[in-house]
Design a protein around this nucleic acid. Structure first.
Lengths: 147, 147
DNA sequence: CTAATTTGTAACATATGTTGTTACATGAAG
DNA sequence: CTTCATGTAACAACATATGTTACAAATTAG
């Protein structure tokens, strides 16, 4: 199963936008991410619908962050992307008549639900501001090593 | 992304085998699971390689559990299946040069690693014996309701 | 010994989902 | 009115899980 990398993508894009003055075009972001501008528009469009970014057309247009970095958590981005499935493992049959299969499903569902709850809780705790800070640290470290 | 349902499948199959005297054929298990006998052989073959079941060919042959139910945890089954990917969400690029992307990856990896650790810990705590017990409870309950 | 049964496995087909690409419409700025 | 940019539909490419067909190998019944 191919993994959904859109959360990773939008985080990468948003941080570049945060470091950049003025709007960034889908073309430029596509180069940052190593993908096609249309893919950028498709994905960023979901963030636009969620009110996290704005898009301007025409000359000097592009994408701009329209929310405070400290208020945009991974959780909120995950929601903006339509809450895609988190797990690559699931039940064979969601509504089985077989009692054996019901026991199996109950055990797996309970376990996965617990892990999902933890994950979403952690997602809620991490914001773009946190990532920007982490990036600044890495940036400073690399300069130190270079000099 | 289509979800891997093999863990669910083998649990279902193993519990039926546990409730059943003598070996069960791939044909019969396929009917229980609603799938093809070849799919059963392919998946059960992994459990055979892990020493959890044995297969006998020819007349009156089939699959038999060769381990104590209390020692077979979901974790062990997950391993027998080759430890397939747990998450349907991942990084776009696993080894980026871009420092921004490194920050993004680090944040996501840390979070997913924590959830994975919890999940595997829970997997280790649940055995086939537990599921068989849960099934027996559901079975008794249903009979009570019927009467 | 032969036929029937059952696993073992390769090869191919189907289904689903993610990502990439092409094409063109729409809107804004110079 | 030309250029630049987003918006979006339609289709292509690719990956992966599951399903199917075909046949070899082993075991047991008769």
């Amino acid at each position: 199963m191919k993994r959904d990398s859109r959360l990773s993508s939008v985080l990468h894009a948003l941080l570049h936008m945060a470091e950049h003055d003025g709007p960034m075009t889908s073309e430029t972001l596509g180069q940052c991410l190593g993908t096609n501008p249309v893919v950028v528009r498709r994905t960023m469009g979901l963030l636009r619908d969620a009110g996290l970014v704005t898009a301007e057309r025409g000359h000097a247009g592009g994408w701009r962050i329209s929310a405070d970095l400290a208020t945009v958590s991974l959780r909120r981005l995950h929601e903006a992307l339509g809450e895609p499935a988190i797990f690559a493992i699931g039940n064979r049959n969601e509504n089985p008549e077989c009692l054996v299969e019901q026991s199996v499903n109950a055990a797996l569902e309970g376990t996965f639900a617990e892990a999902e709850t933890l994950l979403l809780k952690r997602f809620a705790d991490v914001t773009l501001a946190d990532l920007a800070k982490d990036f600044a640290r890495r940036h400073a470290e690399r300069r130190t090593v270079k000099e």
